[in-house]
Simulated assay, not measured.
Amino acid sequence: MDISVVVPLYDEVESLPELTTWISRVMDENRFTYEIILVDDGSKDGSWDMILKLKENNPFIKGYKFRRNYGKSAALNTGFAAANGNVIITMDADLQDSPDEIPALYRRITDDQYDLISGWKAKRYDPLSKTIPTKLFNAATRKMSGINNLHDFNCGLKAYRKAVVKNIEVYGEMHRYIPVLAKWAGFTKIGEQVVEHRARKYGRTKFGWSRFINGFLDLLSIFFVGKFGKRPMHFFGAMGTLSFLAGIVITIWMLSEKLYLIAHNRAYRNVTDNPLFYIALVAMILGSQLFLTGFVAELVSRNSVDRNNYQIEETV
């Protein structure tokens, strides 16, 4: 099979007939073999009934329905697990992504041998309250991930080589950082393509301000897990050692100062009367706690069922 189109959706009953018809037309015109995987993330507006109706007339449609709303990441992860195509295309169900982009994205994967192509909506129809925070998050993600050639990590329109989606796990709110997940899994040939952004035709956006807070926290999580997930002691141990040494250095300096004043018969004050004493004490306690945290995290990591789960591209 050439292409699997994965569409996560939540309360998009009005757009589904037009979207699936549009996708099928593009596939037929380009003679692709395909499947459309619609993942209903607990919709309340009759989206699932519409999926069942559409499937009666289109055998290439597959539907998955969650009992409740789990979020876009869960829907994508389910779609990825079900996908059989050599190339997987993801797009939103609100018709703001154009299926006409699919052939070009497909060729970038098959002909140019990219692992992942991320869409970039250079011209957007979103309000400033959405575009400005998005630009800030994208800048922070580029800095922390080292993927400097992407302008929009969170664009829903993306194309993947099959091996990519079968070797990453999307959870929480990590759908915003799938290119980062792919890079940590060893898929480093990541590119970008300018795509059309269409104005929303039906309904309203399902995302609020909380997504920006969650997105920032998830960025920190993915950075830490990707860099130190299999060696937590390198992070906590290093921080703890530095903190403990800082406390030791301050303590030695205070004691040396006191001994010097005593040797020269000069007035001095007790070490415990010096505010630096308490800073040194806190630094040493904090350092010990961080070191022990690293030790415990290392034990947990070594007993994890996937402690030796590494990405092997091929064998002979």
Rank of each mutant, 00 (worst) to 15 (best):
I37M: 05
I262Y: 01
R25H: 12
G156E: 00
V316I: 10
K121D: 06
S15H: 04
A159F: 10
M233P: 00
W120G: 02
I279V: 15
T188A: 13
D40I: 10
K143V: 08
F224E: 08
G85Q: 04
P103E: 00
V296R: 10
P275F: 08
T272N: 09
P8I: 02
I222T: 11
A246K: 00
N274C: 02
F277T: 15
T33W: 00
S15T: 11
K123M: 05
D41T: 04
Y310Q: 12
N84T: 09
M27R: 07
D92W: 04
P59V: 10
I102Q: 09
K230M: 05
A122D: 05
W253H: 15
K189Q: 07
L95G: 05
I178C: 08
S256T: 04
G208M: 01
A83W: 08
G240V: 06
P133Y: 02
I51F: 15
I178R: 12
L116N: 05
R25Q: 12
L150W: 08
A75Q: 00
G247E: 06
Y260E: 08
A139D: 10
G85C: 03
E196S: 12
G46A: 03
K166L: 07
P179V: 14
H151L: 13
I222Y: 03
Y268V: 10
L292W: 12
K183E: 13
R107K: 13
L54T: 10
G46Q: 06
K189G: 03
I23Y: 05
M1V: 15
G215K: 10
C155L: 03
G229I: 13
L259I: 02
V225T: 02
A93D: 14
L150D: 09
V13E: 13
S98E: 11
V7F: 02
G146M: 11
V282F: 14
V87S: 11
Q311A: 06
K201R: 15
A75C: 00
V7I: 15
L105Q: 04
M174E: 09
V249A: 10
F153Q: 07
N265A: 11
G287Y: 10
R198D: 01
K162F: 10
I117W: 04
E56S: 09
T141N: 07
F187E: 13
L16W: 08
G186F: 04
T90S: 05
I89W: 06
W22H: 13
R68H: 11
F137G: 09
A182T: 06
